[in-house]
Design a protein around this nucleic acid. Sequence first.
DNA 1: AAAACTCATTCAAACGTTTGCGTTATTTTC
DNA 2: GAAAATAACGCAAACGTTTGAATGAGTTTT
Lengths: 339, 339
Amino acid sequence: MTKPATLKEIARRLNVSVSTVSRALHDHPSIGLRTRTQVQQLAQELNYEPNKTAIFFKQGKTFTIGVILPNLSEEFFSMAITGIEQTALKHSYNVLMGQSHDLPELEKRITATMKDHRVDGLIISLAKDSKDFEHFNQLDKYNIPVVFFDRIPPQKTAHYVSCNLRPGISQAAQFLIKKGHKRIALINGPSSLLATKERMEGYTAALHAKKIKIDMGLVVSTDLSTGGTEDAMKQLLALKNPPTAIITFNDYVALDAIRYARRHNKKINQDLSFVSCANLPITHYLDTPPLASVEQFPREQGEKAMEIMLQLLTRGEELKQKGQFFQTELESRLELIEP
Amino acid sequence: MTKPATLKEIARRLNVSVSTVSRALHDHPSIGLRTRTQVQQLAQELNYEPNKTAIFFKQGKTFTIGVILPNLSEEFFSMAITGIEQTALKHSYNVLMGQSHDLPELEKRITATMKDHRVDGLIISLAKDSKDFEHFNQLDKYNIPVVFFDRIPPQKTAHYVSCNLRPGISQAAQFLIKKGHKRIALINGPSSLLATKERMEGYTAALHAKKIKIDMGLVVSTDLSTGGTEDAMKQLLALKNPPTAIITFNDYVALDAIRYARRHNKKINQDLSFVSCANLPITHYLDTPPLASVEQFPREQGEKAMEIMLQLLTRGEELKQKGQFFQTELESRLELIEP
DNA sequence: AAAACTCATTCAAACGTTTGCGTTATTTTC
DNA sequence: GAAAATAACGCAAACGTTTGAATGAGTTTT
C-alpha cells in the first residue's frame, strides 16, 4: 500500500542527514547516543527495512546463487538441491532454481537469464546431451564462478564435485560374484556421459580382478527412457546364455528393468538378481527392490558444491590467480537394500 | 576478470553522453543513424549487457518470484514447482526456491529473506503445522502479492489454488463399492490440514449416497510418517471386522500401508484393496500398486498459481481496490493404475 | 531575414544505500 | 587561555540505468 520507509524518509522527519541515519542504524560509533536512539526508534515505528536491491546493486552482489539441474522429478536432484539450499541458507544465500529438462537449449537460456539477474555464482548439473560449454566460460567474464556437480563437463579446467562410480560398481560386481553369479550384465547409460564410462571401468575392473572374462554381449545401453531400458532388457534376455544378474545405470532404469523382467515371468532376485545405482528412497518401497544400490550421496554432493562456491565467492580472485580448481570426488559405496 | 562494460564506458569511448548511449541501444527515434550504429557496434564489441540489478533497483522490480514449499522430495511438490517454473519462464520471471521442510519457523525465515530480496511475488504451499499467517499479511505492506496453493490457509481473504479432494475421494469410494466392498477404511491425515477434512467429507458423502452406514472405527489417521501409518494399519487390522479396502491420504501413505499389509501376509488388492491420492509416477513402478489414485494435478496447480500471480503483478492495484481474490479450485479425479 | 520547426544530443534527477572526507562545536591538554 | 584533540554530524560521490526537460544547430516557412 504505502511505500516502504527509506533512509531518506527517516532523515527528513528527524531533520538529520541520510548518512547519519545510515550510520545510526549500523551503530556506528561516531553517532551520538541521542540521535542514534531517536533514529532507531523511528525506524522501528516505520517498520524500516533496508532495500536490499539497492544494497545489492551498490555492492555488486545479490547473495543469490543459481542452480541449474536437469530435472527435479529425479529424486537424486531434488536431494542434491536440498543440500545446496541448506548450506546456502546457513550463509544467507538464496537459491535461484532452474530445470533444463535435459534440453541443452533451455539450459543455455536459463544460464543467460541467471547471468542477467547477476547471480553471484552458478551451480549446475549438465543436461544429458550438453556438448557446448562456451556459455559457461562466458560467465567468467562476469566474474560469476561456476561449480559443476555430478554431471560434469569433460574439460578439466573447472570446479566440480562428482561421485566416482568405479568403487561402487566394483563392489556391486564383487557382491554379485560372491553370491555365485558368473554372468553379470550391465545396463549402461548413453555413451556421451562420463558416468557411463565410469560404470564400465568399475565393471571391468571387478571382473578382471576375479578373472572373469568380459562378454561384451552382456553390456548393453539405454537412453534412460522406459522404452530404451526395455529394449536393453529384451536384448539381454534374448541371449542364448542370458545373465543371472544385472547391474543397472540407476534406480529408475532398475525399476523399468525389474518390471520388464517380472512381466516376462522372471522371479526377481532369484532367476535374475538386480543391483542398481543411486540408492534413492523410492527403492525402499518396492516389494522386489534391487538387492543393493550404489549410493552416490546426492545431498553431500550438493553441500560440497555449495561449500566450494562459498570459497570461490570469498577468495575467488586469489584462487583464480593461481589457476587452482576445486575438484572433489566422493567415493560411491554399495548399500544393501532391505526389502 | 575485467569489469563488464557499462553505458558510461561506451559513452566515454565515443565521446557522447550516457543518455545517448541508452537511447541508441533502445532504438529511440531521436538518435541519429550514425551515432546509433556506432553505439550498437561498440556495445557488441564490448559485449555489453545491461546490468539488470541496476534496472531492477530503479524500477523496483526484480522479475523474480519466490516459491516456498514443504519438501521437494515429495513428487507432488516437485511437479508443482515445475509447473510454476515453466509458466514463469514464459513470462521472463525467475524462481527463487525455498523448502520449509514443514517447519513453520523455517518457513517464516525463508519468507523474510525472500522479502529482503524483494521478490515481486510469493507462491507458497504451507508447512504442515503452520498456524501463524501474520508474516504473509505483512508482505502486503511491501506490495508483494501472495498466492497459496494446495496447502492453503483457512482464511478466505487470500488468493489461492487448490484441488478439491471431495469428488475424487467420492469416486474412489464408489469405485470400491462397485467392486463389492462393504467395509472401506480411510487412513486420513493430521486433523490440522484442510485436506483431511475434505477427504472425510468425500468419504462420508459417497457412503451416504450408497446407504452404507459409517463406522468410525474404519476411519483412522496418520501423521504421514511411516511409523504413524503403520500404527494406523495396526489399528485397522486389529478390528474384529477388518476392512477389505482402504483409501489412503496419499501415495506415500499407501506405500507404507501396502508394505505393512504385505508383511502381515495380506494379498494386496485381493485380501485388501487400496486406493490412494496424488497419482504420482512412483506408483507406476510398483508391482502391487494401489488399484487407483486420486489425481490432484500438481503441475496444473502450479501453472494456475503462477498465472494468478502474473495477473496480480500486472493489475494488482486495481484488483486490490475491489477487494477481489483469485480462488481457483480444481476438481480431483480418480485415475486407474495399470500395474 | 526573422520566426518557427525539426533533429540530434546533452543535462540532470531519480532510485536507496554506503562511506571517505570535511565541517563544525565541544572538550581536553599544557 | 590558546592549541590540540575529540565528538557528532553533514556533504557529496558512487553504483548503472532511465527519462523528462533543456540546449543547440540546422532547416524550412513566411
